[in-house]
Computed example of a mutant assay.
Amino acid sequence: MTTNRSEPSNNQSQSILLAGASGVLGRHITRALTEAGHKVTGLGRGRDNGVRADLMDRDAVLRAVDGHHFDTVIHAVTALSKPPLRHRDMYATDALRIEGTAHLIEAAHATGARRFVAESMVFGYGYGDHGDRELAEDDAFGPRGTNPEFERHLAGMRTKERLTFEAPGLEGVALRYGAFYGPGGTENLLPMLRRRQLPAPADHGHVVPWVELTDAARAMVAAVEHGRPGQAYNIADRTPLGFRAHLLAVAEEFGLPKPLPVPLWMMRPMSYAHAIMASTLRVSLAKAERELGWTPVYPSAREGLAALRAAA
């Protein structure tokens, strides 16, 4: 594919600090960056990280990076060990997107980094029905939420990107990912589907973008090497799906019973999950293809799930 990148390539070997390296996405990013010839050091609380610190503790982070040099810093930290169901399940991640980003930008300055890449999400365009039009990166991002809970989440995504783009002396880039699936993620659904413990609410035409995890990691490499400073990029596959349709595809691919159908209103006690499932959102990939040279290997979840099944 012919690309039209307006920034010079940065694909020479870089020293990269990856906050969130021990997460599901972080492990894929580490592998993809290493295979591309970069040296990755993880930042986090776990023992597997080369720089050990809690991102919410500013002083601890700055002490931990003292004496280190990195070319690029990546913020891919969440506080999610499982899919968020209620609004309160997102509160710690909301804080990481605000205070944690500010702390990591200070660390980037302290280590002499030139580039800062942030994991963002397409849901920052707003929860609700966006219709059939594909949203592009110049559409409003982080609009004020329609209630205090939505505003809390949107403020986190809005602030994370603002801090990324406005950090003096840093080339800030943000990747707006769709909902993740794939190796290290989808397998967690299989026991619940096998026991028919995972209901599948009716989609009623609602769809959201998805992205397979290895595709997501390749996009991060592209952003490190080719992302234009001050720019955001939508990263998703070509086939938005409702959550019921996605669960049905997982069950079919792995030969599991179809999940029990339930009306969407029954998900309301799971307030955050209901908000996502009741949203309709499509995004354009044109900018990522044009400027990053990135395109999804798996154009839909069916191809990605088939590859996961074959690997298993």
Rank of each mutant, 00 (worst) to 15 (best):
H38E: 08
F180D: 06
A219N: 01
P143C: 11
V224S: 03
H109V: 13
L285N: 09
R63F: 09
M270A: 15
L25D: 06
G23L: 12
D94R: 03
G242K: 14
A118G: 02
V221H: 00
Y298S: 10
P183D: 09
A95K: 01
A155W: 09
H87G: 12
T2K: 14
P209C: 05
V211E: 05
F70I: 03
D237L: 02
R133V: 15
A286Q: 15
G100P: 08
R162A: 14
L292H: 11
V262H: 07
L190M: 10
E99R: 15
L135R: 03
L241V: 06
P257V: 13
P183G: 11
E106I: 10
H130T: 06
E289I: 02
L189E: 05
L43R: 07
R195P: 08
D237Q: 09
L80Q: 08
P296L: 07
F123G: 01
G128V: 02
V250K: 10
A21F: 09
E149R: 15
W265P: 13
A102S: 02
I74Q: 07
G131Q: 03
D237Y: 11
V221G: 11
G50K: 01
A249L: 02
E212W: 02
T93P: 09
G126Y: 02
A216D: 01
D129N: 12
Y177P: 06
G128M: 12
A36E: 01
K287H: 15
G169F: 00
G42Y: 01
L213Q: 05
L198E: 01
R144Y: 13
D215T: 05
A310E: 15
R58M: 08
M1P: 14
W265R: 14
E289A: 10
R97G: 10
G227S: 07
G50P: 03
E35N: 14
V117S: 08
A140K: 05
A21V: 02
A217T: 01
Y272K: 00
V297W: 13
I105N: 08
V173Q: 06
L260Y: 10
E212A: 00
M121P: 07
G44L: 01
T30D: 07
S22D: 12
L25P: 05
P259V: 12
R114Q: 11
Q231T: 15
G185L: 15
A53E: 03
A236L: 00
M1S: 13
T214Y: 01
P143M: 13
A310Y: 00
R97T: 07
T146D: 14
F243S: 02
T72K: 04
W265S: 15
A108E: 08
I16G: 06
G293Y: 04
A216P: 00
N10S: 09
A200V: 11
G178A: 12
W210G: 00
L80G: 06
G145F: 11
A167K: 12
D66H: 14
R86V: 14
G142C: 04
T3L: 14
A53C: 00
T159G: 02
S22L: 08
R194L: 13
A32M: 00
F70W: 06
H38V: 03
A113C: 13
V61F: 00
R63Y: 12
L163Q: 09
A310H: 06
A174I: 11
A311K: 12
F141D: 03
A312Y: 04
A118M: 10
A273S: 07
V51F: 11
K287R: 15
I16E: 01
